[in-house]
Structures are given as C-alpha cells and as structure tokens.
C-alpha cells in the first residue's frame, strides 16, 4: 500500500468528503457563502453546499460535499495502543471463566471523606456509563460496592473477607491533593498486607488523576476521566492473566463454552 492516500468517493484519488455543520447565522446567500468559506479553509476545494436549511431564525444547517486537497501519509500515523485489548462483556466473561474457573470478585469504594460515588457507581452499577453497562452486568464478576467514605482499614478488611481479585477506588474530591494522599495511604496499607504481585489488583480512578502516575502512587493502574466499565473490565482480565503468566486473548476454547449459562 502506498504511504500516501486521499479519501475515496467513487473514483480513486478523487478526495471526496462530506460534512455537515451549523453556523450561528440566519439562512441566506451570505450564510451559504460562509459555509463555502469554512469548507475551503478546511481544505475542501471545490466545495459544494448541497443543502442549507434554517434552524430557527438565527442558525443554519449545511451539508457540504467536495474534494479535499490534503493527503494522508500513513508513515506519519502514530497511534497510542492501550496496553490491553478491549473486550466485550461476553469476551470478558469467557476470559474470566477460562482464567479463574470461578467469578472474579471486585470490591469498590470511595475512600477518605469523599462522598461522591458518581465515579465508582458509573463503573460498578448495572446502569453503567456512556451507554455501557457497569461491572454488575457481567455474569462472571461479583461486585461488592462499599459506597462512600470508607476507611482504608475497612476496605482492606472487606478485600480480605471477600478474597477480592481486584479493588477499585474512586476519588472525585481533590482539594489539597486529597486524592493523591488517600491513594498513597491505600497503597501502603495494601503493600503491608500483600507482597508485590500478590493480593488484589489495585486500581484507582477519578477525573483529576494522571494515568502515568500508577508507579509513583504504588497502585497497579490509574484510570482518568472518560473511563468506561469495559475499559476497567478488560484491564482486570489482562492484569489477572499477566499475574498468572497467561494470555487472556488466546483463542477461545470449544464453541459450546460460548453459550451463556444462567448465573
């Protein structure tokens, strides 16, 4: 494949694209000219404003077709891969069955004085987040959600009692770096209880965390804003497999195992 390419309409190299947008101005000749100008500045030349429709008195919606002058250079395309493959709930369930031969136990909490369970609930509640169901939805995951304002000793005790495979902690409140202080306290307590690579996989998340801070904070993984339940579930499968030195995405076993059975 050539490293250079253009979009494809109906002829190789025609560069055709379509786009739609709204400008905050009344419909009319001027508005169509404005749309054309925008398209041209986006590299579309010639630009055909094929549709312009007023939305109320002060907005106009456009559909534009045209040939874009830009070239795509595949050699310059750099993508940051996540360190684990994203699995569907079904794939996650199957991987857990193969890996653990029992349900995965996940204990979640908000620690410290943080009463904002928004984050942990978005990940754990069946209701979920961003159109994805939470971990409760997964047949092969047992979720123990301790809720808000849980102390580190209580969380540790629950993780022990439940024989947790993973502990998820959400921190929304960040005044005076409380989220970082709480996380370090948590990590220290867990490392005193369990040796490196043993005990539950320790995950923290929240809108102000930086995903690169896991090592510094002493946890296994940090999730930042926009994380969805599938991200977390996929990561947990990956992390537990890595500890066991197996590849969770190895080809699935016999097809009948794909049948969902009643939990």
């Amino acid at each position: 494949m050539s490293a250079l390419m253009r979009p494809y309409g109906d002829t190789t190299g025609d560069g055709m694209v379509q786009l739609s947008f709204t400008l905050p101005m009344p419909h009319g000749k001027k508005a169509e000219g404005a749309a054309q100008q925008l398209a041209r500045k986006m590299g579309i030349e010639p630009a055909m404003v094929v549709h312009a429709k007023p939305i109320g008195p002060s907005f106009t919606f456009f559909v534009v077709y045209g040939s874009v002058s830009h070239l795509v250079d595949l050699d310059e395309v750099k993508v940051v891969e996540r360190e684990y493959p994203l699995l569907s709930p079904k794939e996650t369930n199957l991987a857990i069955r193969t890996l653990l031969r029992r349900r995965m136990v996940v204990v979640g909490a908000c620690i410290g004085t943080d009463a904002h369970t928004v984050g942990i609930d978005a990940i754990l509640n069946i209701k979920g987040f961003a159109g994805e169901k939470g971990l409760e939805y997964y047949r092969e995951i047992k979720v123990v959600n301790l809720g808000a304002q849980v102390s580190v000793p209580d969380l540790l005790a629950a993780a022990r009692a439940e024989q947790a495979d993973a502990v998820l902690v959400s921190q929304v409140v960040t005044q005076r770096e409380a989220h970082l202080r709480n996380t370090r306290e948590l990590a220290t307590a867990f490392r005193q209880e369990w040796a490196e690579g043993e005990g539950p996989v320790l995950v923290v998340g929240g809108p102000r965390f930086d995903e690169a801070m896991a090592g510094e904070l002493g946890v296994d993984r940090v999730f930042a804003k926009g994380t969805t339940p599938a991200d977390v579930a996929s990561y947990l499968v990956h992390a537990l497999a890595a500890r066991r030195g197996v590849d969770p995405t190895a080809p699935a076993p016999a097809a009948e195992e794909l049948q969902e059975e009643p939990a």
């Binding site: 739609s20 947008f21 709204t22 429709k53 939305i55 907005f59 919606f61 961003a130 159109g131």
Partner: peptide
C-alpha cells in the same frame, strides 16, 4: 447521535 454526543442543535432539528 445517541451514545455519541449530547444532542446538537442540528441533531434535534433532524
């Protein structure tokens, strides 16, 4: 645009 973005003005109009 369900599940993509919160509805834009044009999404609602369409």
């Amino acid at each position: 645009t369900e599940g993509v973005v919160t509805p834009w003005l044009s999404d609602r109009d369409l």
